[in-house]
């Protein structure tokens, strides 16, 4: 049987990042405390540790309901995990008012994450827009950790404007190892663009980014607004990347995350169960 029941989590900490966004740190409350509810013994690996990059969890803010978020750091042995959350609707607005120490709920991990077997050791172009960088964070970290000499990784990151850019610390860290291009939709008159920064959308830099590769990029990972991803995917196909080597992370409203409530449909598929990552080929 599927479970609709969240595990209790503690809101451990949060730090602001960009405009109206925060990194939240949560801790699964009962993971290491054997109790009537949790008969797992201490040493066994809990199922949350199976979380793969690109998978998501349902955050339960009890007085409001549930919504889907991705991990920026997956649950560790102690049951601690992180997520980047933007204040958007009722649930996140309420979350932003909650104090540290509050008990909330989480269900997961859910869905099909990034296809690691198809990504490993490949030359990869990553295109992310706005909050879309969040589901890529721990993947980029692990790709960098395992980067081989012949392998190249390039990231294009687009944001509305300078204030809306997220994950600055992470991007600074990655900058040491991989090439990053930033695009800004709007800049004000006084602002001077820094290196590898341009005005426009990520699409405008795809050609430049592809030219960075010594051996051509063979794989692409996309995450962000659907219109942007669709245009980018078409452009990448035109540039010779196979449609089954282009992967998109799709976002949908979700209530159950287990393929029942129907909200996240995408043609005949459900994003929660069959996604959230799909190859461009699958979406044709």
């Amino acid at each position: 049987m599927l479970s609709h029941i969240p595990d209790a989590i503690e809101l451990v900490d949060y730090i602001d990042d960009g405009e109206q966004a925060r990194h939240y740190q949560f801790r699964l409350v009962n993971i290491n405390k054997p109790s009537e509810k949790n008969t797992n013994n201490n040493t066994a690996k809990h199922h949350w540790q199976d979380a793969q990059p690109g998978q998501f969890f349902m955050l339960n803010v009890p007085s409001i309901g549930e919504a889907a978020f991705t991990f920026t750091e997956p649950p560790n042995e102690q049951g601690e995990f992180r997520a980047l959350i933007r204040q958007m609707g009722k649930l996140t607005t309420t979350l932003f008012t909650l104090p540290k120490g509050d008990i909330l709920g989480a269900r997961g991990p859910f869905g099909r994450g990034w296809p690691l077997e198809k990504i490993n050791k490949k030359n990869i172009i990553i295109i992310a827009g706005g909050c879309g960088l969040a589901p890529l964070v721990n993947l980029i970290d692990s790709l960098i950790d395992n980067l081989t000499a012949s392998q190249q990784l390039v990231l294009i990151y687009g944001a509305q404007n300078k204030q809306a850019q997220l994950l600055t610390t992470e991007r600074e860290r990655w900058q040491q190892h991989i090439k990053i291009y930033n695009s800004l939709d709007e800049i004000n008159d006084q602002y001077t663009l820094v290196e590898n920064e341009s005005q426009g959308t990520p699409l405008d830099i795809v050609d430049i980014a592809l030219a960075t590769f010594i051996k051509p990029a063979t794989t692409a990972l996309l995450c962000g607004p659907e219109i942007m991803m669709n245009s980018a995917a078409k452009k990448l196909v035109d540039n010779g990347i196979a449609s089954d080597d282009i992967f998109l992370a799709i976002e949908r409203r979700m209530h159950c995350a287990i393929g029942l409530c129907g909200h996240c449909y995408l043609n005949e598929r459900y994003v929660c169960k069959n996604g959230p990552t799909f190859s461009w080929q699958e979406l044709q």
């Binding site: 919504a67 958007m88 609707g89 009722k90 649930l91 996140t92 607004p225 659907e226 976002e251 949908r252 409203r253 909200h263 996240c264 449909y265 995408l266």
Partner: peptide, 9 residues
Amino acid sequence: QREASFHNP
């Protein structure tokens, strides 16, 4: 299907 961001597929 409308999301909190008002995006609606």
